[in-house]
Amino acid sequence: MATNGSPEIVGVTEAFYQAVFDTDRNRAFAVVQQALDQGISAEELVFSAVIPSMDRMIKAVSEDFNASLAQHFMTAQIASQVTDLLLSKFSQKPAVLGRVVIGTAFGDLHTLGKRIVIGCLKSLMVEVTDLGVNVSPEKFVDEAQARGAGVIAISAMMVHTARGEQGALAVRELLAQRGVEDRIKLVVGGAPFRFDPELYKVVRADAWADDGISAGRVITRFLQGEVL
């Protein structure tokens, strides 16, 4: 059996990272299957290969890797699908890092960014509830409270859905009214926030992420109790 840091798992991790980096889904699955066949457990693969690879990818994307949107999408999907496969092989239900509810802002039907974030978070062992598109502020907060989520993530691709009265501003208002601002953080993302990096303050979010992959880092830091 390979152990964390053993040559076997290091080799698997590197091969998996390269496959994800190259957005080669078949190769990523082949690497994982080969490792399973060699007797490396699903648990080890998730914690020693998938999560470190996603951490490395997040770091690369946020620092200097000039990846395209398609690469972000494919990376997140590959990591998420591999994680789903491995989770089904876990001997017992794994502990999650935290819980997040995510959706697109009221009036917004764009799903791609949300899906990238979901894929990224799932591969980091975050339990994600997808509320879908065109989500009302009440639904965001109701679901977050019902599920014990530490973060509400809102994706908005248009200026009026990012800034509108039924978007993040209304969610913030509800969080304040219900007295749960210290327990539930509000993270936003989408094109308007890239065009205006100060916009997240205007809509009273706690943080924003430049892209779906980087959102993984922002959200997991909140879930781990960091003050950003």
């Binding site: 009036g107 039907l109 065109n134 248009m158 200026v159 009026h160 859905t161 509108g164």
Partner: peptide, 12 residues
């Protein structure tokens, strides 16, 4: 098409 009061319409 989904019309908004304060922004461009969306394909629904």
């Amino acid at each position: 098409i989904l019309f908004a009061k304060d922004g461009p319409p969306n394909v629904k």
